[in-house]
Simulated assay, not measured.
Amino acid sequence: MSNPKHSIQGKTALIAGGAKNLGGLLATDLVHHGAKAVAIHYNSAASKADALKTVAALEKMGATAIALQGDLSTASAVKKLFADAVAAVGRPDIAINTVGKVLKKPMSEISEAEFDEMDAVNNKAAFFFLKEAGKHVNDGGKICTLVTSLLGAFTPFYSSYAGTKAPVEHYTRAAAKELGARGISVTAVGPGPMDTPFFYGQESADAQAYHKSAAALSPFSQTGLTDIEDVVPFVRHLVSDGWWITGQTILINGGYTTK
């Protein structure tokens, strides 16, 4: 039986990278389960239309919603995002960071500029999102960061992607310890390769075929990949009745990798 204390009903959420794909679906799912207000973050003008479309959908469902733009690769931008979200919809009960950037290249070909960009998006932004979430999320709140199932892989070519997502595991543990006294749970979720443009833009036809057959449950998936619809219920659980799970990184991938 659901504990009203950890219900999504009447809660306020902030979703970084919430314009489309997994972030957009998480936003609509939270409202479907009772969230009253959602702040949707988007990175740049390229995703503004998607963010506004998601906001319109949330408003049609009866929620208060706002779209907030920001390049979260600086601490000041993350701080501004939380300040703007609080001003617009109130202090969040739920903060979810889905922001990420993929680069598939041999280590020998990765430039310093490419590494710095990956580090800023996947590592630095995640750290300061957790920092600001710790300051602004209400007591008893929930914080979740999207990482990657490649954290459980022994594979080439993703060194800068998995490597810059890996620190989030420790940030999650540290934040869970530091915020536990306020009843705040902190988790990370690592989906397998997802059936979104985020995946297809990086992979050759051969690589796509491999990833679509690599998970133990691939034969039972429509795409062979992790569908965003398979990830959403787990995140919803972690930010509601699953509050007792904290400090953990959970891989959701149908048996693609494990730890």
Results as ranks from 00 to 15, higher is better:
156 P>V: 06
70 G>P: 04
74 T>S: 10
65 A>E: 06
178 E>Q: 14
136 H>Y: 12
28 T>P: 00
202 Q>F: 07
119 D>L: 13
204 S>I: 04
43 N>P: 01
244 W>T: 12
16 A>F: 06
123 N>V: 00
49 A>S: 10
155 T>S: 08
138 N>D: 14
235 V>D: 07
37 A>H: 13
118 M>Y: 05
240 S>A: 12
36 K>I: 10
247 G>S: 04
138 N>Y: 02
22 L>Q: 06
21 N>K: 07
197 P>H: 08
25 L>D: 05
136 H>Q: 13
56 A>S: 13
235 V>P: 04
141 G>Q: 09
97 N>P: 03
146 L>S: 04
163 G>K: 04
251 L>Q: 09
7 S>R: 04
239 V>I: 12
170 H>I: 15
121 V>M: 10
120 A>N: 10
131 K>P: 08
94 I>H: 01
81 L>N: 01
154 F>C: 11
246 T>I: 06
79 K>Q: 13
104 K>G: 07
147 V>R: 00
256 Y>S: 01
118 M>T: 06
224 G>W: 03
164 T>H: 05
114 E>V: 08
169 E>R: 14
46 A>G: 14
214 A>K: 14
89 V>I: 15
124 K>A: 14
151 L>Q: 05
214 A>R: 13
161 Y>E: 02
225 L>I: 02
41 H>T: 06
43 N>W: 14
135 K>L: 15
230 D>Y: 02
230 D>Q: 09
177 K>A: 12
190 G>S: 05
110 I>T: 13
229 E>N: 11
181 A>D: 15
194 M>D: 10
45 A>P: 12
221 S>K: 12
247 G>W: 08
196 T>P: 06
192 G>C: 11
107 M>L: 15
22 L>W: 06
99 V>N: 03
138 N>W: 02
124 K>V: 08
173 R>D: 04
49 A>R: 10
148 T>F: 08
9 Q>S: 07
125 A>P: 00
151 L>N: 06
159 S>I: 09
186 V>E: 03
96 I>M: 00
23 G>F: 04
89 V>M: 02
117 E>W: 07
15 I>V: 14
182 R>W: 00
186 V>R: 06
177 K>M: 10
75 A>G: 09
101 K>Q: 14
202 Q>D: 11
114 E>M: 07
179 L>T: 01
181 A>M: 12
127 F>C: 05
35 A>G: 09
64 T>Y: 05
52 L>A: 10
198 F>N: 07
105 K>M: 13
139 D>K: 11
191 P>M: 09
7 S>Y: 01
183 G>I: 03
188 A>E: 00
225 L>N: 00
71 D>Y: 02
